[in-house]
Design a protein around this nucleic acid. Structure first.
Lengths: 138, 138
DNA sequence: ATTCATTTGCAACAATGTTGCAAAACTAAT
DNA sequence: ATTAGTTTTGCAACATTGTTGCAAATGAAT
């Protein structure tokens, strides 16, 4: 567990610090998207707010986590699959938000739909966000 | 112009006030999604911040405008089509964000893709957000 | 162990969003 | 048009969220 987390940091050429280990472990343990507030709570308020902001930003920059647009205007972060690398995210998957428990899932096995845009528009990236009830809450 | 805006307010059983007229006119005039900050700027700082927040909330509640989830965590608002009514939004259309000019469009004529979710999940609503270059910026 | 670069925590600040309440504006009825 | 009652607005104060500069602490490499 800790080994895997250390590997991720090494692979991204980041120094190994308590803070980074702890936050990465939270993502690995929970296997769902977390907000800044989630992390602050789950880490037992052991780290400074600013440090968490900066760590999350670093992880996004390095392609370790990605952000998820949400309807209620709160940024969620989730682990990237190995396909992601620095400055080049491949988080082309559907995100599912459960209306009951509030959990955000990355649906990696669902293929992204093709969106036809009008003449003159060109598509760079597509985000699909689905609301509903997850398998644990029905 | 002003007539149309007044009709919208009457239809939603809202009283006609300067603030509401002005904000609705901004949406009609611009025909694109606006943020709270956009409205504050475009209205010439004539209205209180709090009033704008409350007005936008009222409009969302009444089905006059809808919110758009964005990747950078800023809420955008856009006019609903007539199909929307109080407490029941039909903003089932694709949203397009231009990476160059930052304009958010509602692509009403693009049909929403069907998303296949895993067994046990049920879909309530789907949001599709596309990034790219719009027809004015290419 | 020492050096050097990076990371962290603190403080201060900026931006964004919320709530209570009195004054102002709007609506409806005379 | 005036009045009475309700709704809306602006202000003040506060809460939350995110940012920046800087000195101290930590990690990496020799």
């Amino acid at each position: 567990m800790k080994e895997a987390v250390i590997d991720i940091l090494k692979h991204s050429q980041l120094s190994i610090t308590d803070n980074r280990l702890k936050i990465l472990e939270l993502f690995q343990k929970n296997q769902k998207a977390l907000s800044h507030a989630d992390i602050e709570r789950l880490s037992g308020k052991h780290f400074d707010r600013v440090t968490i902001y900066r760590t999350l930003q670093t992880f996004v920059d390095k392609g370790i986590i990605h952000t998820i647009p949400t309807a209620d205007n709160s940024i969620m972060y989730a682990l990237c699959k190995e396909a992601c690398s620095e400055g080049h995210h491949h988080d082309d998957h559907v995100h599912f938000l459960c209306d009951t428990c509030g959990t955000t899932y990355c649906l990696d096995n669902v293929n992204m739909p093709e969106v036809n845009v009008p003449k003159g528009f060109s598509v760079h990236q597509t985000n699909v966000l689905v609301n509903g009830i997850c398998k644990n809450c029905r």
